[in-house]
């Protein structure tokens, strides 16, 4: 069960909004890079987000570059899950590989600043502020196995290979 505040963003937030290319020189200094998380979408986000909070977005979140630094800095900010109408393919895979849940659901029912609760067992998001209950799509089986091991590298270390 995760609980925290919703930080809402719109559609088509690209990996350039999350960690722009101009900051590539900070990619080997992750704590410094993380201070800029989502800077080009909301320059105040990094200062306001607290561990446990949620990034709640519209459609096609994380489109663009394959940089895994994008979900990585979101995870480093303490975000417990990303709630999205849809996500771009590489971003989805990267987030799961890092052990960061991405939950596909109708995010129109959540407003910016709402207190929300996510129950991974039942697959339900509860918006405490407005009372909405929203079901999210189950994470595909194989990706769920990776997520449950805390990410791809730990999964492979434990199983030695892909176990379908």
């Amino acid at each position: 069960m995760f609980k925290g505040k919703a930080f809402k963003f719109g559609d088509n937030i690209s990996t350039d909004h999350i960690v722009p290319g101009r900051l590539a020189h900070l990619r080997s200094n992750l704590p410094e890079l993380a201070k800029h998380v989502l800077e080009d979408a909301d320059p105040t986000f990094a200062a306001r987000v607290k561990p446990g909070d949620f990034v709640v977005v519209g459609s096609n979140f994380g489109l663009g570059s394959s940089r895994e630094h994008a979900p990585l800095v979101i995870k480093m900010a303490g975000v417990s899950a990303i709630l999205a109408k849809s996500v771009a393919r590489i971003f989805f895979r990267n987030a799961i590989n890092l052990g960061l849940p991405v939950l596909i659901c109708d995010t129109n029912k959540i407003d910016d600043g709402d207190e929300i609760e996510v129950d991974m067992e039942t697959g339900v998001v509860r918006d405490i502020t407005n009372g909405n209950k929203i079901a999210f799509k189950p994470i595909p089986t194989f990706m769920s196995a990776i997520l449950n091991e805390g990410g791809l590298i730990s999964y492979i270390k434990k199983h030695g290979d892909f176990k379908l």
Partner: peptide, 17 residues
């Protein structure tokens, strides 16, 4: 295209999913 973890694993195993 894939992220860094996926490519690290592909380099190590010579396989991916």
């Amino acid at each position: 295209g894939m992220g860094s973890s996926d490519v690290a694993v592909a380099m190590a195993l010579g396989r991916t999913w």
